[in-house]
Design a protein around this nucleic acid. Structure first.
Length: 726
RNA sequence: GCGCGCUUAGCUCAGUUGGUUAGAGCGUCCCGUUUACACCGGGAAGGUCCAGGGUUCGAAUCCUUGAGCGCGCACCA
């Protein structure tokens, strides 16, 4: 044992171990369930466990949030693999369309003072794509650093060839069935990013603005946006409002307005809140979702006031061509001079929509865009709507959501859901598979290369391709063996902030395209914050690089710090002290193992000595604990299982049982019993701890003589494919 | 406005279906170089479990009211 001693005599050094151990795992091929079966590690009749990695955006590098996600998932996957299930954890990355292009454009502007308009579409696409793929490469090596036992042979990318096929197949099916349509509707236009975004990509910000009350003929109306009011020719009030009893729906009157007289029409609609302001408002259907809805309801005229760049159009008269901010004060000045300004409330606080990625102020516009209809009955799905298809599996319990409280948010979201705008005016992404020639339109899976046909210039919302992820990664639309074996997947583990973006869309797409759920359980995790509870962000410069922490304390320690005591859905504050503590734990395991191995040299595990009464009792106690832990793991309560293992290893095994064994061995009283106990404890605990702290446990395992590990399969010398100890 | 979550030791948080003196890590104090480990061991201090009311033999845990903080959603011009 002299060679082993030399290594064991020093404290545990994760830096010298982890890379080497990962290479061993990877070379073994056991990340791939096919290899596990070939080599007899997994029984042919074994049950399946499958999960896709939520594909990180190729916008940069992995951060602490990804570490949390990888730690949780790898722990679960290693557990299931050790239990003998046919286990697939499928890796991939997300092209993330707007996010990646926006990041790239920002860098490009900074470095070269150039924009997308300085390049051809093809060249620009290539540049963003190269940027994304370089990031992807970095991220994949970071995943290895985290010990992720992902099956690299099945690596996928949302914008690779196979996924392109899936996207186009899905698009065409939805198009042919009338679920995808093109039309003029009001959308969220981001003037800064020069693209539309979906409702979910808007972020509301509380802001203080001036609120103006204006004279509109015999009425007084309120607005925070006088610059949109030029064309307002409908004045709306509640049908029950006694103050305006003398006005009837459809009444016409001429009012003096910003640029002269205007013919106004009275509309009576219960959407008006009588309590707010004067109970009267004018509407701007082109630039407000609510006004648009009203205009649709009564078939009213709609007129564009502001262009795509946030500048006023000719309808604004003398203000035409001005930017919104510049025009507002001037318009108010004019109103004042005309005696139309009644009052100004300087302290009006309201919420304005901004674009999640660019921060731009959203300007609603009516534009021709592509949408997914969420309320149309689908004949091929029993006349259910996409809303129904999203709602039902969760409501019925076919899909379990953890923690449960997110179910309510989910239902609520579905209830308020409008048609999903899926077209984007950016270059990086899946181009819409529709071609035009004059008045003719074709949707095709393969490129149309015929004379005169041109493809729609827009690209798809990135979440369209992510929505297909659970099955596009398994080969769909082809009927592959993987698809049959691993879909529906067992589990999905996203952050709760993408419940609507991603989880809902996956359920929708899978239910519609495959007629089955995408996963059985959704385990949502929280956000990793800094030690003060603030969100990590570039601007706050409070980021902590995972690599730095790993270099200092090891991956095992970092992983444990993110798992112990962190329940599903709860945020956690990153705490370097906690990492340090689990680094010490790794060392503790290392040292305890040294002692056990020294004391049990030459013992044959096939013929373990008989244990005395108290040792046998300890042995049973551990068996009981392992049973409990197994149950916790099955319920994905890793935060409990990990804490119990930590507690037991340190404060029972090391503090009590090893200390007791010293005495027995020293006094040579039941010494063999003691040896048997500490050896079997060590091997069981290493196995149970392996999913959580894979590196140190694997390294220790490699130092245990083969005779102790027992017969087993010659290929199964690695702890990662040992049998779970129960 | 509707809905949800959190509030437990100085700090960060556990506490699974209500059950004996409420736990962990870090921090603080005292002691200890016992041959696995000073990245250690032994011990100690430290909590009205946000507040009030209720259910119960028994509540941090269930119900109710309130406060503070946070989050999701919503058409208040």
């Amino acid at each position: 044992m002299s060679e082993i001693d030399a290594k064991l005599l020093k404290p545990y050094e994760p830096g010298k171990t982890e890379e080497k151990v990962y290479r061993l795992w990877e070379e073994s091929g056991f990340f791939n369930p096919d290899v596990c079966e070939e080599k007899g590690v997994t029984d042919k009749k074994a049950g399946h466990f499958s999960m896709v990695l939520p594909p990180p955006n190729v916008t940069g590098r992995l951060h602490m949030g990804h570490v949390l996600e990888h730690a949780l998932q790898d722990t679960i996957v290693r557990f299931e693999r050790m239990r003998g299930k046919r286990t697939l954890w499928l890796p991939g990355t997300d092209h993330a369309a707007i996010a990646t292009q926006a990041r790239f454009e920002k860098d490009l502007q900074k470095a070269e003072k150039k924009s997308r308009h300085d390049f051809s579409r093809e060249d620009f696409f290539k540049m963003v794509s190269d940027f994304g793929l370089q990031n992807q490469k970095d991220m994949l090596s970071q995943m290895r650093l985290l010990g992720a036992s992902l099956d690299w042979s099945r690596l996928a990318f949302t914008l690779d060839e196979k996924r392109e096929l899936a996207v186009r197949t899905a698009f065409k099916k939805m198009y042919d069935e009338g679920l995808i349509y093109r039309g003029y509707r009001i959308v969220n236009w981001d003037p800064k990013g020069q693209t539309t975004i979906s409702d979910d990509e808007t972020v509301y910000e509380e802001r203080k603005d001036k609120f103006y009350t204006l004279k509109y003929g015999p009425f007084e109306i309120g607005t925070a946006r006088p610059e949109t009011k030029f064309g307002d020719k409908y004045v709306v009030m509640h049908p029950d409002d006694k103050r305006y009893k003398k006005w009837k729906n459809g009444d016409k009157l001429t009012v003096e307005w910003i640029n002269g007289p205007i013919e106004a029409t009275v509309i009576k609609d219960p959407m008006i809140d009588m309590e707010f302001g004067t109970g009267v408002m004018t509407i701007t259907p082109w630039h407000s979702h609510e006004d648009f809805a009203l205009a649709e309801k009564y078939g009213l005229d709609k007129e564009q006031i502001i262009d795509k760049y946030g500048k006023l159009l000719p309808v604004a008269g003398e203000f035409a061509g001005m930017k919104i901010a510049e025009a507002r004060e001037k318009i108010v000045e004019k109103l004042k001079n005309k005696g139309l300004l009644v009052s100004v409330d300087e302290n009006y606080s309201h919420r304005v929509a901004t674009a999640e990625r660019t921060g731009g102020l959203i300007e609603p516009q009516i534009m021709e865009q592509w949408f997914i209809n969420v309320t149309k009955p689908i004949p091929s799905r029993g006349n259910k709507t996409l809303k129904d298809l999203m709602y039902e599996p969760v409501k019925s319990g076919k899909i379990k959501v953890m923690p449960e409280r997110f179910e309510k948010e989910y239902y609520h979201w579905i209830e308020n859901l409008r048609d999903w705008c899926i077209s984007r005016q950016i270059i990086y992404g899946h181009r819409i598979p529709v071609w035009y020639k004059g008045e003719k339109t074709r949707c095709e899976i393969d490129d149309v290369n015929e004379e005169g046909w041109t493809q729609d210039p827009d690209t798809l919302d990135t979440w369209f391709s992510s929505g297909l992820w659970t099955f596009s990664t398994l080969g769909w639309p082809e009927e592959t063996a993987d698809l049959k074996a691993y879909h529906p997947t067992s589990l999905i583990n996203p952050g709760y902030e993408i419940l609507f973006f991603w989880v809902a869309r996956m359920i929708m797409m899978s239910q519609y395209l495959l007629g089955e759920i995408p996963f059985k359980t959704v385990y949502m995790h929280g956000i990793v914050r800094d030690s003060k509870g603030q969100k990590f962000s570039k601007s706050a410069k409070n980021g902590v690089e995972p690599e730095e922490v790993i270099k200092q304390y090891g991956t095992d320690a970092l992983r444990m710090s993110m798992i112990v005591g962190v329940g599903p859905g709860s945020d956690l504050s990153f705490d370097i002290q906690k990492v340090k503590a689990y680094g010490k734990f790794a060392n503790k395991m290392w040292n305890a193992s040294r002692f056990v191995l020294e004391q049990t040299e030459g013992i044959d595990s096939e013929n373990l000595p008989k244990m005395d009464e108290e040792d046998e009792k300890a042995d049973e106690e551990l068996a009981g604990l392992l049973k409990e832990i197994t149950k916790d793991m099955e319920e994905y309560k890793l935060y409990l299982a990990s804490e119990k293992l930590y507690e037991y290893f340190w404060h029972v095994f090391a503090d009590v049982l090893i200390e007791r064994s010293k005495k027995k061995i020293q006094e040579d009283k039941n010494a063999d019993s003691a040896r048997a106990l500490i050896l079997s404890h060590l091997t069981s605990l290493l196995k149970a701890l392996h999913p959580f702290m894979p590196f140190v446990t694997e390294e220790i395992w490699s130092l245990i003589p083969g005779s102790v590990k027992g017969g087993g399969l010659p290929s199964a010398k690695l702890l990662m494919v040992e049998k779970w100890p129960i």
